[in-house]
Design a protein around this nucleic acid. Structure first.
Length: 150
DNA sequence: GCCAACGTTGGC
DNA sequence: GCCAACGTTGGC
């Protein structure tokens, strides 16, 4: 089983939104690396941190499970959708998504600032300079360490 | 709001 | 295949 971290802007979709709906398609990802991970590498039952970005309290806020493995992101076909991509079409879809299921909120937000304080996490992809990936793998070692901070 | 870092596009 | 221009991400 793999572990992941998935970013979301809480003004768009927050951990509380996920708690309410329980299961949600992770649509709108328009980055090839992130797409490949969703389409090929994420497996049902994998665990993922939910991370709030671009907000007042940036950091890891909860845990989700992958509920459905990669399938076509149909929002790319919808002209009215914010993430419409004219280069994707049903015959040759370009973008894929997974479904995530709410597992639990962390007892507190483990902030980005706090993560940066720990030498053990220095190699985390999230903390690497210039990192902009919205979905990334997290090693078991890092995962367990982060949970020990909770 | 600023801006560094990155990805994508498209002309050549 | 190169690279400038542009758009986006996301912390601050």
């Amino acid at each position: 089983m793999q572990h992941w971290l998935m970013k979301s802007e809480p003004s768009e979709f927050s951990i509380d939104d996920l708690k309410r709906v329980k299961v949600e398609p992770w649509d709108g990802v328009r980055n090839y690396q992130a797409r490949n991970m969703m389409n090929k590498e994420m497996k049902k039952g994998d665990l993922a941190f939910m991370y709030h970005s671009n907000c007042d309290e940036i950091g890891i806020v909860g845990i989700m499970t992958i509920a459905r493995e990669g399938y076509v992101d149909h929002t790319a076909f919808d002209k009215k959708d914010k993430h419409y991509d004219p280069k994707s079409n049903p015959e040759n879809p370009r973008w894929f998504m997974v479904d995530v299921r709410y597992k639990r909120k962390l007892k507190r937000t483990i902030t980005l600032a706090e993560l940066k304080e720990h030498k053990k996490l220095a190699e985390m992809q999230l903390l690497k300079r210039g990192n902009r990936l919205s979905i990334m793998p997290v090693s078991k070692k890092h995962w367990d360490f982060i949970l020990s901070l909770e």
